[in-house]
Design a protein around this nucleic acid. Structure first.
Lengths: 350, 350
DNA sequence: AGCGTCATCTATATCGTTACAAATTTTTTC
DNA sequence: GAAAAAATTTGTAACGATATAGATGACGCT
């Protein structure tokens, strides 16, 4: 089936302007349907919108014709007229680490958007530009109807901006702002707490945790969960100083290798990232330490990766696809509903 | 900085229709600039397009004013008028495996699109619908100016469709079609050949390879490279029968675990996927086979993952970010240029 | 008849941009 | 100094959809 030459100049290439049913391959518009049914363009538009003031019979007839000729509304025209873009922007830093963390989320998002008229646009935020720039840009130029972003900070500029402008958004992670806003988060307090308890229960006497960069809210949650557990049990602990979960895996490995060679070596490690958890394992391996005996590790699992890792590692699962699905649904709800719906959801540790 | 209430009804919420410079917060359009400069809208448009028939001085003045008031053209209007969407569609199946493989590619793509007016839209192709559907849909409804997809087949329907319609696209992987078309591929022949030679050189006597599903062109390339090497050296070999690189990691592991328990166990494994390579390692581990001694493995590396894996595994690197960057650049070239540029690039094994 | 009510349908204007042809001004030429 | 040529600028009409207000006809009521 050839749709005509859509390549270089598009439909403008055809000079056939006689609005008859010349060839069946001109892109159908409302006008086409109007001519076919003998109705006015407006009526067709309203009919397709299922307006009650159009006779039921007419509506059905229009629908019929529309589907017969494969009519689909022109997004650009709708967008220009209504101001609605049918776009959801996922703003993220296209670094491998973050991207891979966003992968499952994208899966959930596409699932949530499936069957809706919404498209998912990846809006990159390059780390050499201010964090709020993409958000500002999207709002200012109405590039999307809703924004999704991750790695929320306690006093997140993006959240503030979006709220000021009453622009639909949802973020992964919480802020510590006074005003409520929708978000989806994972119980990182629970993760760290549970991880620490597991290690202590397994006999560890000194726990070590690698945290996310301090600026992220979930770093605080993790630290808090960790601290609560070690205080409850009164065990020794240590928090990684020079590396974070955002550090390169090689750096994390090197850092841990060094640390494991120094006195007072921890025997229980908590790592909230998949590849960085492998770095911990690698550091232990390079010291000929046996995992599950000399040192123990609890990692956060966000994919099937750790099911293939040997020796088996204890993990706690965070379902990012579920988070993505939820975020998508909540955002659509927020966009559709005229009144601000403040939905907050924290996915629990299992 | 508040941009006004952009949430519910957008700019349409303001009834201020006096086209003066009432508030500075109305979205600037060509009309705004026209009024400010005393020129006609058309002139402003042409001036911003740097048309040679507009006096240089005028062009500069218009530019000046435009940047002062922060003018940015309305995408929807441009799109409606010109038929150009400024969108690049990346079509992919949002399964975790494929997505994670596409992750680095997305990184390269965003890099290529950086600074251009093009947006990256993730167009999901759900496996329960015909493969060519998204492509057809994108062309028919002019959802994008160019299409990118992966996992090309020898007689790929999508390629045929896109070529018939002369629609700009680029795919990752080659076809075996008569007509030339642009693509970016990785030398999977070289990968398998090199991997096999490495294993043989290390002393392996029976090689085993897990291939991608037969329907993909690169499966043939890999098989061919593998076969060439084993025939040259006359070593025994085996090709995975019940699993492919697309199988679930658990299935791959279970399959290999079984195979390793049977007589005539291979001692050299080639695996063209990251997580599935870990499955091979896991299967060996579960059999108490020592990697690098009892069995050897050569894996394809597409991220930093294997730098953290112990014991160290021999890998051959495929740079998917580079592929993404290249694909983005070639596609943009193809979209911009009026004459079809047939660019074929195969990234070599290193 | 005359008038209002209801159910349908339609004409017009507009979103912001660009293509096209025509109009205006300036410069050149004889 | 007038006509021709060149250099600028401008008006009008789309692109395809929808919001708004208005038109049409059928029907019932007094």
């Amino acid at each position: 089936m050839s749709l005509g030459d859509l390549g270089e100049k598009g439909r403008r290439a055809k000079p056939e302007r006689e609005s008859g049913q010349a060839g069946g391959n001109a892109k159908p518009t409302l006008k086409t349907i109007a001519e076919l049914t003998g109705l006015a363009v407006t009526t067709v538009s309203r009919a397709l919108a299922d307006a009650p003031q159009i006779a039921l019979e007419t509506r059905q007839r229009v629908r019929q014709v529309a589907s017969e000729i494969g009519y689909l509304p022109d997004r650009a025209a709708q967008r220009l007229r209504t101001g609605r873009t049918n776009v959801i922007s996922l703003v993220l830093d296209p670094h491998e680490e973050i991207l891979s963390y966003a992968t499952s989320m994208i899966k959930g998002l596409t699932e949530a958007l499936r069957g809706t008229p919404y498209h998912l646009v990846i809006t990159p935020h390059f780390s050499d530009t201010p964090q709020a720039d993409p958000v500002r840009h999207i709002m200012r130029n109405r590039m999307a109807d809703g924004i999704i972003f991750t790695r929320t900070e306690p006093s997140d500029e993006r959240v503030k901006l979006l709220m000021e402008n009453n622009f639909p958004f949802i973020c992964h992670g919480r802020t510590e702002l006074a005003t409520a806003h929708p978000y989806v988060d994972y119980d990182n307090y629970g993760f760290a707490y549970l991880a620490a308890r597991k290690l202590i229960a397994a006999g560890c006497r000194k726990l070590f945790i690698i945290l996310p960069p301090e600026r992220f809210t979930f770093a605080h949650h993790m630290r808090h969960g960790f601290m609560t557990a070690v205080r409850e049990e009164g065990v020794a602990f240590e928090i990684a100083r020079d590396v974070t979960l955002d550090s390169g895996s090689d750096d994390i490995r090197d850092y841990l290798f060094r640390r494991m060679g120094e006195p007072g070596r921890p025997d229980g490690f908590i790592c909230g990232g998949e590849v960085s958890a492998l770095s911990v394992m690698a550091a232990a391996y390079d010291h000929h330490l046996e995992l599950g005996k000399d040192v123990r590790l609890v990692a956060k699992q966000t994919s099937g990766l750790f099911d293939q890792i040997r020796p088996r590692v204890e993990t706690i699962y965070e379902d990012l696809a579920e988070a993505g699905l939820l975020m998508g649904r909540l955002l659509l709800k927020r966009i559709g509903g005229p009144q601000p719906i403040d939905e907050m959801r924290v996915l629990q540790t299992v």
